[in-house]
Design a protein around this nucleic acid. Structure first.
Lengths: 358, 358
DNA sequence: CCCGATCCAGAAAGCGCTTTCCATCACTCG
DNA sequence: CGAGTGATGGAAAGCGCTTTCTGGATCGGG
């Protein structure tokens, strides 16, 4: 049906080998021969069969990216920037294709998609999202990653902890300074005068959850060694979704423990927090300050604009693209930490003078 | 390097053909033979080479989806739901892989990615986003779509106008009732008492832009035949991004034409509109009402919550998945229109009594 | 009890491309 | 002026899987 390389060869009056060489370069081909082949390709509208090429070359132009949910801004930005940077910028047709896999953070889905990608002999794979800190899954994952890397697939872990694979394998890790960001965010709250700070943590057993919580508590401790424990009753584990923030806040309100600020695990949950607070008749930031994390685009348009921590997702995506395509060499040690930045906006203010119980 | 089907065959003591048949079904294989093969597959950790399979079968498990920008909520939701519905729900490993391509709406990028997908012998392709209404590109696209469809690739156009291909080809179209939604949205504004309604349209030459504007103007006309023209001076074409809404609003404000409401082409632009308005000291909705379009998740968390039109993106993605995988037969005529729904929230209210010039 | 129908499984021919390994050919050097 | 040399292009062997095409058993009906 479709035009094949052999037909192009016939038309150009050369052998298939020559056509292949013209198309792929890396081999001397005389000027006029090349021209004849190119004209034949043009005239026939030849489009190379990627499967055949991948089979013969034992590697494909596919790059897999595992995300929790591509509809989530965090992953959307990461994946978008990744996809855009897969091929060298400026001029030239794209060549590499991004395969997006929603795992919802489920280990089983992660494994299943890795199998699929391994079957595709993907040129690279990027794993994003907070890894489930399940020893069994981690072990299985390490094996998979090592096997794929050994087979020539470049692997990049982005926003999740590195896996222990042999040094020589092409595996890189890009992480965010979540801990530092959370630390500065808590510091900001403390400086404003807050002491009873509620914390809506992410789902338990996730590296991101742990890092952010650790940074937060570290700041509290630095301020007053007894503070982390004092705030324990105000810490709840929820999810990264809006509804999780909403529900957790209602729960907090129900308990009756007084607080003057709520730090959410991320911006999305913070939106839910704010909604629950407003519903309860509390003003932000006059009665309660609210903070998020990630600095997703919408956080500047919430009511009020959200104080948060900027996570360089765009940069991370572009970096991951360079690493996964091999355009950038692996950093020594294989791991790159990207800085985060405190973004102070309108949702935080000093606590109310009379310490009301919300 | 990797385990091949032949090795599995040797281990199971059968021929490669039999292993293939066990793996793919559709051919009778005796019970014990099947068991032996399955055990061999298990023991060897065999993962089929997808390229080889695609080459032999002349079709791959890849489904391409072209979007303007996957980081944009509109496309993120569409693509996410699409990806999630590629494989039949409930149980079973995933099989199909979604290839996401950001085109930024550029015809050249669209063509380039279609070429890549054609080379991959993709099982299906979903084109989303407002199509550029460029006759030349439309013609080229029609050819491409027809050729891919003729080669067995299922094509679904989602949220963009159908292309004229022969009836028999597997090409489906899923569109939103943008016009109806815009109509009802304008009606809502008119009912509140607004007459001087600014309209921040999307980029010119896009089907979505045209449909939404048409519905809007139709409602105005229905109310008062002279109204569309009266509002012409208040209509500006911008983009679908936040900054476009922001800039357009500043421009509107600068012109000095009085208005009591601003309808933006979509939610994202509406966020920019609201920001510009607030910066100018205008209150929403007391001084100016604002409306969006799409009902992206963040629109309930803006200040104030945005009146908008819900576009069933999730449903569309799932539907597109069924169509592109062939799990759902093409509807007669090939085109499905999905309804939109007016969502009245806090950003719209009656115009201020004294008609101030903002 | 023989024969066509029914099951299963193997042999082998590709699918379309890449990539050695060779064969030329035109020169250039001694 | 013959052999060595580099630049080109062709032949052919796969890459790993699917899918006819065949053929040997097994089975039921006449």
């Amino acid at each position: 049906m479709a035009v094949t390389l052999a037909e192009v060869a016939v038309r150009a009056g050369v052998s298939p080998a020559t056509v292949s060489r013209v198309l792929n370069g890396g081999y001397p081909v005389a000027g006029d021969t090349r021209t004849r082949v190119e004209r034949a390709v043009e005239e026939l509208g030849y489009i190379a069969n990627a499967s055949a090429r991948a089979l013969a070359a034992a590697t494909s132009d596919l790059v897999g990216i595992l995300v929790h949910d591509i509809a989530d801004g965090y992953f959307g930005i990461l994946a978008g920037s990744l996809q855009g940077a897969l091929d060298p910028a400026g001029g030239g047709e794209p060549r590499r294709l991004a395969v997006v896999c929603n795992t919802q953070g489920a280990p089983a889905a992660e494994t299943a998609y890795l199998t699929l990608l391994e079957g595709q002999r993907a040129g690279g794979v990027v794993l994003t999202g907070a890894a489930a800190e399940d020893p069994e899954h981690t072990a299985a994952l390490t094996l998979r990653v090592a096997r794929m890397a050994a087979a020539g697939t470049r692997v990049v872990l982005c926003g999740r902890p590195p896996v222990p694979v042999p040094e020589a394998l092409p595996v890189a890790t890009v992480v965010f300074d979540d801990r530092g960001g959370a630390f500065r965010l808590a510091e900001h709250l403390l400086t404003l005068g807050h002491r009873r700070i509620a914390y809506i943590a992410g789902p338990p057993g996730r590296s991101t959850t742990r890092e952010r919580l650790a940074g937060h508590r570290e700041a509290l401790r630095r301020h007053d060694p007894a503070l982390p424990e004092a705030c324990d009753a105000l810490t709840v584990h929820a999810g990264f979704e809006r509804s999780a923030g909403y529900d957790a806040t209602r729960e907090l309100l129900r308990r009756g423990e007084p607080f003057t600020a709520v730090a959410a695990a991320n911006d999305t949950a913070a939106a839910g927090v704010a909604a629950a607070l407003r519903e309860a008749g509390l003003r932000i930031p006059e009665d309660v300050s609210v903070t998020g994390f990630d600095d997703l685009p919408f956080s500047q348009d919430t009511a009020p604009a959200l104080t948060t921590v900027r996570v360089p997702l765009r940069e991370a995506g572009a970096l991951a693209a360079q690493l996964v395509t091999g355009r950038r060499p692996l950093p020594p040690g294989g791991i790159t930490t990207l800085p985060t930045e405190l973004m102070v906006r309108a949702s935080t203010a000093p606590p109310p003078p009379a310490r009301r119980t919300p």
